[in-house]
């Protein structure tokens, strides 16, 4: 699949924003001492707001006819993209209510803080889940059509969110919260495990072949001619191919930047390096998302001559 840059930015940024806001709100409402500080909460909330809104705006950039984007709320019953749009919008009043309450009344856990906070945290996770299901529900792309896809999206969103949360907390208060630090380390390990399982899983051959695609299941089939002299929409969208050894190099790079380096930086327990770790993870996840697209092979490729996907 052709990796559209706007979609990479959207899924990584909004994923990190949703992860950040969920962990922060839960930490605050369940009484984590380092999060009972309205400057920390407002900074974290502002950052999450910026990441999520920036991501959503970026996602509209890949629409070829954005003037009809408002219609995307209309097929909630069947379409994951529609559900994502609806929940993404529903999330805002809860987030803004929660932040406004902190700004006005401080960090005390009142009924209104709980209502708005738990609502925002739940909707953040639901939206992230819907985003992942857009991909996971496509039977045409074996590498996405798996429960590993939502697990990946949610684990990596929480992971990048936890690093951002630890970074914000230490940057604002000047000292490191060991609880947030431990949570971030745990989630980095979890994210790495989930990603490695995914990479192993997509390596296994399975699914449709050129034989089932053309209906000639008892003989070999070779493409002679695609029938056009230059690439069309299908070639550009689905024909995206990267050399195998470049993919391997990028995988190694991705694991290093997104997981290993941030983990090592976390081990130093230094407040300044936490910010660097969070930034590295976001960059690493951009590579991860790029690979998620580049390694996905749509079944249309079979009609264009691939023997299997």
């Amino acid at each position: 699949m052709h990796p559209a840059f706007s979609v990479l930015v959207f899924t990584v940024m909004s994923g990190a924003g949703y992860g950040l806001i969920t962990l922060m709100i839960l930490g605050h409402l369940f009484g984590l001492p380092q999060l009972q500080d309205s400057t920390v909460l407002l900074t974290g909330g502002g950052l999450a707001f910026a990441l999520i809104s920036g991501g959503l705006l970026s996602s509209t950039l890949h629409l070829a006819n954005p003037k009809n984007a408002w219609r995307s709320f209309s097929r909630f019953k069947t379409s994951w993209l529609s559900r994502e749009a609806v929940f993404a919008v529903l999330f805002y009043p809860f987030l803004l209510g929660y932040l406004a309450n902190i700004w006005a009344n401080g960090t005390e856990v009142t009924g209104i803080a709980q209502l708005a906070g738990f609502g925002a945290a739940a909707l953040a996770m639901v939206t992230l889940f819907c985003t992942s299901m857009i991909y996971a529900s496509l039977k045409t792309i074996r590498q996405w059509n798996s429960s590993l896809t939502p697990v990946n999206y949610i684990a990596l969103g929480l992971m990048s969110g936890s690093l951002l949360l630890a970074a914000v907390q230490s940057a604002v208060t000047g000292d490191l919260s060991s609880t947030l630090h431990t949570i971030a380390m745990g989630l980095v390990v979890l994210g790495a495990v989930v990603k490695v399982i995914y990479l192993f899983w997509i390596g296994k051959p399975a699914g449709s072949t050129i034989n089932t695609a053309t209906g000639f299941t008892q003989a070999s089939v070779r493409l002679l001619d695609q029938g056009h002299t230059s690439n069309g929409f299908l070639n550009n969208e689905f024909g995206y191919t990267v050399e195998a050894n470049k993919l391997v190099r990028l995988r190694v790079l991705m694991v290093a930047i997104a997981f290993v380096l941030p983990f090592l930086l976390l081990l130093t327990s230094s407040a300044g390096l936490l910010v660097l770790a969070a930034i590295l993870t976001i960059i690493g996840l951009l590579v991860e998302r790029w690979l998620f697209f580049a390694e996905a092979r749509h079944v249309v490729r079979l009609f264009h001559g691939d023997q299997r996907v």
Binding site: M1, L63, N65, N68, L81, L138, F233, E237, V300
Partner: peptide, 25 residues
Amino acid sequence: KCMGCNLCSWACPYGARELDPQEGT
């Protein structure tokens, strides 16, 4: 009504849908 999100073309196994390069639908 189409907003040109391409998702339907991803869901089609037969390559039957193509985005119009000028219209964006």
